[in-house]
Computed example of a mutant assay.
Amino acid sequence: MRSIALVFAILLLGFPALAGEAEVKAAQGSISAQIEAFRTGEDAAAYSYAAPNVKRIFPTLETFMGMVSGGYKPVHHAQSFDFGKFREMSPTSIIQQVMIVGPDGKDYEAVYTLELQPDGVWRITGVSLRASNSLST
């Protein structure tokens, strides 16, 4: 009986970690999909990953892409990217570090904030971008 209770307790404790991992993977999937859409020139698809707060500030695809192409060239034309650290701020909010090699061959760090939307999709609420101190290989 004790072993059954122990197994049950381990399973209960394990589920939140699995759910958290699945949520992070889903959020990373939104980031990957947006970067890939930028790479392939599918601007409308890239815009679809912007959260409502971003769409209020940039209400048209043209204004959004103007912002991206003007201020986020390493994201817009990433040569490659890898996910770094993440932090789950709440069940519906995640911060994700992304290491990017920009079109200039330099390293950048992008910190994405994402929120889970009512339709079940993680959408990007903001991106902070800076040159990274790491070296590309």
Rank of each mutant, 00 (worst) to 15 (best):
residue 1 M to Y: 11
residue 1 M to F: 10
residue 2 R to Q: 14
residue 2 R to V: 11
residue 2 R to D: 11
residue 4 I to G: 01
residue 6 L to C: 07
residue 11 L to D: 01
residue 11 L to N: 04
residue 12 L to T: 08
residue 12 L to M: 14
residue 12 L to W: 08
residue 13 L to P: 01
residue 16 P to L: 03
residue 17 A to W: 15
residue 18 L to V: 14
residue 20 G to W: 09
residue 21 E to L: 13
residue 26 A to V: 02
residue 26 A to M: 11
residue 27 A to C: 05
residue 29 G to K: 08
residue 30 S to P: 05
residue 31 I to A: 00
residue 32 S to V: 02
residue 32 S to A: 14
residue 34 Q to L: 04
residue 34 Q to G: 00
residue 36 E to F: 08
residue 37 A to T: 04
residue 38 F to T: 00
residue 38 F to P: 00
residue 39 R to M: 08
residue 39 R to K: 14
residue 39 R to Y: 07
residue 40 T to S: 12
residue 41 G to W: 10
residue 42 E to H: 11
residue 42 E to G: 00
residue 43 D to N: 12
residue 44 A to L: 13
residue 47 Y to W: 10
residue 47 Y to M: 03
residue 52 P to V: 01
residue 54 V to I: 15
residue 55 K to M: 07
residue 55 K to V: 05
residue 59 P to V: 07
residue 59 P to K: 07
residue 60 T to G: 06
residue 61 L to D: 05
residue 61 L to T: 04
residue 62 E to W: 04
residue 62 E to K: 13
residue 63 T to G: 04
residue 63 T to M: 08
residue 63 T to S: 15
residue 63 T to D: 13
residue 65 M to A: 02
residue 67 M to K: 10
residue 68 V to E: 03
residue 68 V to N: 02
residue 69 S to L: 11
residue 70 G to A: 11
residue 71 G to V: 02
residue 72 Y to V: 02
residue 72 Y to T: 03
residue 74 P to Y: 03
residue 75 V to S: 09
residue 76 H to M: 10
residue 76 H to K: 13
residue 76 H to E: 14
residue 77 H to R: 12
residue 77 H to F: 12
residue 79 Q to H: 10
residue 79 Q to V: 10
residue 83 F to V: 06
residue 84 G to F: 07
residue 85 K to H: 09
residue 85 K to V: 07
residue 89 M to P: 00
residue 89 M to N: 10
residue 91 P to E: 10
residue 93 S to E: 14
residue 93 S to V: 04
residue 94 I to L: 15
residue 94 I to V: 13
residue 95 I to H: 05
residue 96 Q to W: 09
residue 96 Q to I: 09
residue 96 Q to D: 06
residue 97 Q to H: 15
residue 98 V to W: 01
residue 100 I to N: 03
residue 101 V to L: 12
residue 101 V to E: 12
residue 102 G to P: 01
residue 106 K to R: 14
residue 106 K to W: 03
residue 106 K to Q: 13
residue 107 D to G: 12
residue 107 D to E: 14
residue 109 E to N: 09
residue 110 A to I: 05
residue 111 V to Y: 03
residue 114 L to A: 12
residue 114 L to P: 09
residue 116 L to P: 00
residue 117 Q to K: 05
residue 117 Q to D: 13
residue 117 Q to F: 02
residue 118 P to G: 03
residue 118 P to I: 03
residue 120 G to R: 11
residue 121 V to I: 12
residue 121 V to A: 12
residue 124 I to N: 11
residue 126 G to K: 02
residue 127 V to G: 00
residue 127 V to K: 02
residue 128 S to W: 10
residue 128 S to N: 15
residue 131 A to P: 07
residue 136 S to Y: 15
residue 136 S to M: 07
residue 137 T to R: 12
